[in-house]
Nucleic acid binder design. Structure first.
Lengths: 361, 361
DNA sequence: CAGCTGGATGAAAACGTTTACATCGGGAGC
DNA sequence: GCTCCCGATGTAAACGTTTTCATCCAGCTG
């Protein structure tokens, strides 16, 4: 039915070995047989079978990507970065999402065994040690935004703590001393770090930590909406809302608008991530830039390096941290934030390599 | 190095055939050997090699997904729908993006040959016939939002024409008779259909088609920003802007805000797609709901059906069209659009099966 | 001219599964 | 007590590549 290398060999009256050599230019072949083989291959529309090739070569030229979800702009940005880096290295992507616990991740990994050369796992709600457990031994893996456990798997993260700290300091510098905080899910590593950063900034400013000013969301717009509603319902509402990610900030602003509470005049709202849409919101969103696509690219680069054995020795768990940057826009009411005359997203920015340096801790 | 079925067989002192039978429960095996095999397999952490399995079975339990891009919420929604449907059928996803022309699509397909059982291709800027050309003969394929060519490949689309027509009619009914239109890329099939729908509505209302009111974008926020700038620069600016997708509508609103032109009072702005963030914008975006995730799910369901040969005969090109719905929110200035008290995105809506019926043309 | 060297090729053994096909019991039917 | 069938297993042939090894021949070197 489907045309195989044998068909090509037969019609070109050579052995399959020669066909393979021509197609991969892996050994010298005389110019005329080479031409003959190519011609037959073209005319038959021959395309080598990927599974057979992977099996024989013992490498698949593919990477596995395991994500907790695909909802919202964050994951598509991440995937975009991963895809760019993988494609540059001629690798395909086997993607699987909706994996929130170690069991689910385990079964996703099993489905990928033998079809991928390495694994990119984002599991902010799962302990890194638990992930390591379900991992095949010595399988090249990079964990994205995992909890900072002392496991043996390579990890890349964003400076959640520093970013949140800087943001809270910024809000304080604007004179907003009562800050409501919409946190992420309780077991989410990123969410926790951002919370810690916020705390740290408050404490070093000598401010108390008021439990009434804390509500817990789940990184969805809806939970941001709910969070804002809760915060506005307390006896003395805050003067600013710091949502632990942009999606929740968007939800919060949406609630405030419905209540005719003007942002930023009556309420400053800030987020975290700098998803692409943030700069186009009304008001444009002050946030912490993460360089999501760059994160994906760096993670992929790390993995590809490991595959080429330009890698750190497998038993040394390295941990990379990408820096974050404050992006001051309209929603925080900062006087420095004049409306930009041009949208910042130029076509070059859209391909998204931010060249953010890596700092190892 | 890695543990294979032979290792399991040896340690359980049975043949590889028996191990395979146990693992797939494909033939009766006595309870005690069965138990013994399972125990050995577990203790060795044996996981079957996917490539070998695909090769032997002649099916990969994977689908190939080829997208033009990954930027923005549209594609992540689509991918989310596809992933849901595929996962339900225990299929993996091999994803490849950034393919805008037939050549790129062709090479992506070649890389997937033998690793996937079917193909999901979104290529709005490529003629369906050109896609069919680079397709392996008789390979199960579903085209998403492809141009309506008479090719032999199955296609699923959204009712772009009807949606755009309804939207323009709505704007006209609000008394906005001068409507600026920000179109999509010139060769984009979806964009063209939406343009046609807009035209049709104008014509049946007896209105002229003013070329000054047409600007061409590329579905990015930035091009929406530029488009709005252009439209505001003409001698007698419009009273409404219809952007051919939500991203451009967001860009347009962003420009208008910078110019202190209030939306919807001085300018109505509407979009197309109903990406998740649309309802959280300020003002919330009036748009045409497409059910993006549902589109992905339906496309995948169609493909899976074809794989099971519950399919339409391969030589009959079927064409499915999903209906679209007007979603009236704040940005069009419609009196009927009272602010909702609750965000519409409930957690059930987030898993996104819209149950939108399929209408075949 | 004997002995190398190396380019061009083919035969066949991997790679790790699944799956015909074959074998061997033993219990049921007569 | 003889078939017949069926459950439980093993052997080996696929699946479609790549790659090692071997072979052959031509052209050098000495």
């Amino acid at each position: 039915m489907t045309v195989t290398i044998k068909d090509v060999a037969r019609l070109a009256s050579v052995s399959v070995a020669t066909v393979s050599r021509v197609l991969n230019s892996s050994a010298p072949v005389s110019p005329d047989t080479r031409e003959r083989v190519l011609q037959v291959a073209r005319s038959l529309h021959f395309v080598p079978n990927g599974s057979a090739r992977s099996l024989s070569r013992r490498r698949a030229a593919a990477l596995g990507v395991i994500l907790p979800d695909l909802y919202g702009e964050f994951f598509s940005e991440l995937l975009r970065g991963i895809d760019q880096a993988a494609q540059r290295a001629s690798h395909s992507l086997l993607v699987s999402s909706s994996h929130h616990d170690a069991r689910g991740i385990g079964s996703a990994i099993r489905a990928m065994r033998g079809r991928v050369d390495g694994l990119l796992i984002m599991a902010p709600e799962v302990d890194a040690a638990d992930v390591a457990e379900v991992l095949p031994a010595d399988f090249p893996t990079v964990l994205i935004n995992g909890a900072a456990a002392s496991s043996s798997v390579q990890t890349i993260t964003v400076d959640n703590f520093g970013g949140a700290q800087a943001m809270t300091e910024h809000l304080l510098s604007l004179g907003r001393r009562r800050i409501g905080f919409i946190a992420g899910a309780a077991h989410n590593a990123d969410a926790l770090e951002r919370e810690r950063g916020h705390h740290a900034a408050l404490q070093s400013a000598g401010l108390p930590i008021d439990p009434e000013l804390y509500v817990r969301g789940d990184f969805s717009e809806e939970s941001g909406w709910q969070g804002a509603a809760t915060l506005m319902g307390i006896l003395s509402p805050p003067a600013a809302i710091f949502a632990a990610n942009d999606a929740m900030a968007i939800g919060a602003i949406s609630y405030l608008r419905e209540q005719d509470i003007t942002v930023p005049e009556r309420m400053a709202v800030v987020g975290f991530d700098d998803i692409p849409v943030a700069r186009y919101l009304n008001p444009s969103l002050t946030t912490v830039r993460v360089g999501i696509a760059a994160l994906g690219q760096q993670a992929t680069a790390l993995l590809l390096d490991a595959l080429d054995n330009r890698a750190p020795p497998t038993n040394v768990a390295s941990r990379s941290v990408l820096p974050t940057h404050l992006v001051i826009r309209g929603s925080c009411g900062s006087p420095t934030s004049a409306p930009s005359r041009q949208p910042a997203a130029s076509s070059t920015a859209r391909n998204g390599f931010d060249e953010t340096p890596i700092v190892s801790h």
